[in-house]
Amino acid sequence: MKTAHEIRPGNVIMLDGSPWVVQKTETTRSGRNAAIVKLKLKNLLLDSGTEQTFKGEDKLDDIVLERLDCTYSYFADPMYVFMDEEYNQYDVEADNLGDAAAYIVDGMEDQCQVTFYNEKAISVELPVHIVREVIYTEPSARGDTSGKVMKPATITGGGTVTVADFVKVGDKIEIDTRTGEFKKRV
């Protein structure tokens, strides 16, 4: 069991007797610091989708499926192709990558985990922390160095991350793939 707060895109959870792959997680804060977690889910048996909301500390039944360490190889629309150490290739539907798709870039060396259900690659889990280059962001408006003033930045691959005001074009930044949050400049 994992708490809803610990669930990540790519995890598979059992709900009401069916396996669901988590395509997207969105954590927000309700009153009195309580976390609310919204999950976008796809039913692995019926191929149907749903969205559900949980308290951050709610326990969810995550199931352990076969997983393989893989690296991203190339994109063959609409499939992302990953490869394991023995050069076997696995196709994952773009839809099943959820938010992770924003971090997939050519040449990336991050060790990903491809999850299988009934011998089919159904999802990909990225490392918790990845490093990407900022390819566009507005210059710092106020010269803030505290890290409290934030602004949007486009990273390699085209995704957008909210970063500290001091981050510049060309900087490499660490991102938490569970939340999409900027962690630090590296």
């Binding site: 969105e26 927000t28 309700s30 009153g31 009195r32 919204k38 909301t53 949980f54 308290k55």
Partner: peptide
């Protein structure tokens, strides 16, 4: 839940939680 004017509330209201 608690009252909030944040945008995310629209997307979470009325969702199930199995």
């Amino acid at each position: 839940e608690y009252l909030s004017a944040e945008d995310w509330v629209d997307g979470c209201h009325g969702l199930p939680s199995t």
